[in-house]
């Protein structure tokens, strides 16, 4: 991932509902900027869920959101001036 820019030009963020995540990792694996990682902790059902480990690279493209089989995550663009 060294060829990726350290900071995305388009800024985005994700929202996660940890309690409905089943830990399939689709979002983490197929994030184009590799901005997501598994949480250290477990949710109530015992799954690790995604966290935005590198908010500075997230573009809010929502590919995580479309891949998610459990409707547990979605991405969105930040509005100008909005902080992640």
């Amino acid at each position: 991932m060294s060829d990726k820019p350290a900071t995305a030009k388009v800024k985005g963020t994700v929202s996660v509902k940890p309690e409905v995540c089943k830990g399939c990792a689709y979002c983490i694996e197929f994030c184009p900027t590799k901005s997501l990682e598994f949480s250290q902790s477990f949710n109530r059902k015992g799954y690790h869920y995604p966290v935005l480990a590198r908010p500075e690279t997230c573009t809010g493209c929502d590919l995580c959101g479309v891949h998610c089989p459990d409707f547990a995550i979605f991405g969105r663009r930040l509005k100008p001036g909005e902080k992640a």
């Binding site: 963020t13 994700v14 929202s15 996660v16 990682e37 966290v51 935005l52 908010p55 997230c58």
Partner: peptide
């Protein structure tokens, strides 16, 4: 929640 910028 861990990680920055992660909203419920």
């Amino acid at each position: 929640l861990e990680g920055a910028g992660c909203a419920v």
